[in-house]
Amino acid sequence: ETIMEVNLLKGPKGLGFSIAGGIGNQHIPGDNSIYITKIIEGGAAQKDGRLQIGDRLLAVNNTNLQDVRHEEAVASLKNTSDMVYLKVAKP
Results as ranks from 00 to 15, higher is better:
Ala44Asp: 05
Lys47Thr: 15
Leu58Gln: 03
Lys13Gly: 07
Lys90His: 05
Gly42His: 10
Leu8Val: 08
Ile19Tyr: 06
Tyr35Phe: 10
Asn32Arg: 05
Ala59Cys: 14
Arg69Lys: 12
Leu86Asp: 01
Lys90Ala: 04
Lys78Trp: 07
Ala44Ile: 14
Ala75Gly: 10
Leu58Ser: 03
Asn32Tyr: 05
Arg50Gln: 15
Gly49Lys: 05
Asn62Ala: 12
Ile19Phe: 07
Lys78Thr: 11
Thr37Leu: 05
Leu86Gln: 01
Ala75Arg: 15
Ile36Ser: 00
Ala20Thr: 10
Asp67Pro: 03
Gly21Tyr: 02
His70Met: 10
Gln52Ile: 10
Ile40Leu: 14
Val84Thr: 12
Val74Tyr: 10
Asn32Ala: 08
Gly21His: 02
Gly49Gln: 14
Ala59Ile: 14
Ile40Gly: 10
Ile39Leu: 11
Asn79Thr: 14
Asp82Gln: 09
Asp67His: 04
His27Val: 04
Ile40His: 12
Gly11Asp: 14
Ile40Val: 13
Ser18Gly: 09
Ile3Thr: 08
Glu41Ile: 13
Ala75Phe: 15
Leu57Lys: 01
Gly22Gln: 02
Ala75Thr: 06
Lys87Pro: 01
Lys10Val: 06
Ile28Gln: 11
Asn62Thr: 12
Ala89Lys: 07
Ser18Val: 12
Lys47Asp: 13
Gln66Asp: 06
Ile34Val: 11
Asp82Ile: 03
Lys10Arg: 06
Tyr85Thr: 11
Ala75Lys: 12
Ile36Asn: 01
Leu58Arg: 03
Asp31His: 06
Ala89Arg: 07
Gln46Ser: 13
Ser76Ala: 09
Ile40Phe: 12
Leu65Asn: 01
Gly16Asn: 01
Leu86Gly: 00
Asp31Ser: 09
Val74Thr: 09
Ala59Ser: 13
Asp31Leu: 03
Tyr85Val: 13
Ile53Trp: 06
Ile39Asn: 01
Gly54Asn: 10
Asn25Leu: 11
Val88Asp: 01
Ala59Glu: 10
Gln66Thr: 10
Thr80His: 14
Gly49Cys: 04
Asn64Glu: 12
Thr80Asp: 05
Gly11Trp: 06
Glu5Gln: 14
Thr2Arg: 05
Val6Pro: 01
Gly14Trp: 02
Lys87Cys: 05
Ala89Ser: 09
Gly54Lys: 04
Phe17Arg: 00
Ile34Gln: 03
Ile53Gln: 13
Gly16Ser: 01
Asp82Trp: 04
Phe17Ile: 03
Asn62Cys: 05
Asp31Asn: 10
Gly22Asp: 02
Leu51Ala: 02
Ala73Tyr: 02
Glu41Arg: 13
Val84Lys: 02
Ile40Tyr: 08
Val6Ala: 04
Arg56Lys: 13
Glu71Asp: 15
Glu1Tyr: 15
Ile28Cys: 07
Ser76Phe: 12
Leu8Ser: 01
Leu65Gly: 00
Leu65Arg: 00
Met83Thr: 14
Asp48Pro: 01
Leu8Lys: 00
Tyr35Leu: 05
Asn7Ile: 05
Asp31Met: 04
Asn7Leu: 05
Pro91Glu: 12
Ile40Pro: 08
Asp55Arg: 01
Ala44Gln: 13
Ala45Ile: 10
Lys38Ala: 15
Gly54Phe: 04
Met4Lys: 11
Arg69Trp: 11
Pro29Glu: 09
Asp48Met: 03
Phe17Glu: 00
Lys78Leu: 11
Ile39Met: 14
Asn32Gln: 11
Val68Asn: 05
Gly22Leu: 01
Thr37Val: 12
His70Cys: 13
Tyr85Glu: 13
Gly16Cys: 01
Ala73Asp: 00
Ser18Ile: 08
Asp55Gly: 04
Ser81His: 04
Lys13Phe: 04
Asn25Arg: 11
Glu72Phe: 09
Gly11Tyr: 08
Asp48His: 13
Thr63Cys: 05
Ile40Asn: 12
Val68Met: 10
Ala89Asn: 08
Gln66Phe: 10
Ile39Glu: 01
Lys10Asn: 03
Leu65Glu: 01
Ser33Asn: 14
Ile28Lys: 15
Asn64Ile: 14
Asn7Arg: 11
Val84His: 03
Gln26Val: 06
Asp55Leu: 09
Glu71Tyr: 05
Ala89Gly: 11
Gly24Val: 09
Gly14Asp: 06
Val6Phe: 14
Lys38Glu: 13
Glu41Trp: 05
Leu77Gly: 01
Leu8Phe: 14
Leu77Asn: 00
Pro29Ile: 12
Ile53Asn: 10
Asn7Ser: 09
Gly14Ile: 03
